[in-house]
Design a protein around this nucleic acid. Structure first.
Lengths: 219, 219
DNA sequence: ATTTAACCTGACCAAGTGGTCAAATATTTT
DNA sequence: AAAATATTTGACCACTTGGTCAGGTTAAAT
């Protein structure tokens, strides 16, 4: 990411005000996501974010005014990406396919954008003070449709019943996000080695198979 | 000094130096766990901890010297309790029983001591800087024995193979700890209502059944 | 009873903290 | 070209931070 910042800054010199703002906002958002992921809202400082973004601190305040404002923007952008990964549940009719693609997409997100997942986790752990609206309206709505999909599959005897469909959904969330949020722990328990791309693909398949079997679908 | 004298002194409002230290350390540790759970190491302040403990800030420093020191003591105490819950995996031979009791114990811990789980999660998310030793030696050791138990069950055809036994173990961790770490999210998605004890018992059973089925055991 | 050792805490400090601002610079508009 | 607008940033400020410490109180040992 550092290289990206350097590249963008190097290119500057003859660009429109509009694109300057656009670029800098992206740079700052990326830096903020990284820092917030590590230390949460309270534990992060605007100075840290500025250093990662390689900009003066005043610049961060110029574009986002307050730390809280910047934080909210980060949360919002994560939520958007999150919802994109959630589409499979509504686009596939067969549970085997829907679950396979959804779990796969969530695993991919954990791999490619772990910081976002961590910011989200941090926010929830600290009581979700800045996300209650997102959770109780937008996420809740998606969860409801998702739960009714699962219930339909149960009624059609396509999957085993698990009592409350939420339990199954939460298992998917927890298991997939674990590979982002707890990645440091996983590395340490893997003798200090990060999973290679192909090892991660394998992991993904294993997770998908476990999830499918948990509701009685033979992979 | 006889117990009678101690009792009398206690009645008069006097406490022995030893019990004063013991009591205050416990009070401070409990307060610290609560605060660290919410804001992590960097985001928590000794003043907040002092306020929750209802003691002057200097008192916190008197007993634990530094914030980091107090934080390490909290982590250590959580790890100890965690390992206690982990015993079933070594005391039951049959996977069905071992898994049932282990998952049950972890769910119970999420219910009764959610702050500890959150402190742990926070620490891992922020890169586990204070826990590398605990993770790479003590936790690693337990994981290794656990993995070999699972592998044995696979060889004896008592459970389905999931490729890497770690995948299964991590699924258990993630799913059970989710009920502690993400409790605020669960409450919001449950229309603002916390689960009652009996509802939680039900959830616990559902989780156990999902986990068992994921490796091909009919509950 | 007196000394010793542990406990207690308000006052204090140096090092940050989020945020402001004015002045300098760069781009756009007229 | 000049006025208007947007970006950049060092200097600055009121406030909070973790941590210290002196001087007091309380319990234990002599």
């Amino acid at each position: 990411m550092g290289d990206q910042i350097v590249a963008v800054k190097a290119k500057r010199g003859q660009r429109s005000k509009e694109s300057i703002r656009e670029d800098n906002e992206l740079i700052i958002l990326a830096a903020a996501e990284k820092v917030f992921a590590k230390h949460g809202l309270k534990g992060s400082t605007t100075k840290q974010i500025a250093d990662v973004a390689k900009l003066p601190k005043s610049n961060i305040h110029y574009y986002f005014h307050t730390k809280l404002n910047l934080y909210r923007r980060v949360l919002e952008s994560i939520f958007v990406e999150w919802m994109k990964a959630a589409e499979p549940f509504n686009t596939y009719d067969e549970p085997k396919e829907a679950i396979r693609f959804y779990v796969g997409a969530k695993m991919d997100l954990s791999r490619t954008r772990p910081f976002g997942s961590k910011v989200w986790a941090n926010e929830i752990i600290s009581g979700a003070p800045e996300m209650e609206e997102i959770l109780s309206s937008r996420l809740k709505k998606w969860v409801d449709t998702c739960v009714s999909s699962i219930n339909t599959w149960v009624e059609l005897k396509k999957i085993n019943s698990m009592g409350d469909a939420h339990t199954f959904l939460y298992m998917i969330w927890a298991t997939t996000q674990h590979y982002a949020d707890f990645d440091y722990q996983l590395i340490i328990l893997n003798n200090g080695k990060k999973l290679t791309d192909s090892e991660f693909e394998e992991k993904k398949q294993q997770v998908i198979d476990l999830v499918l079997r948990s509701v009685g679908i033979e992979p």
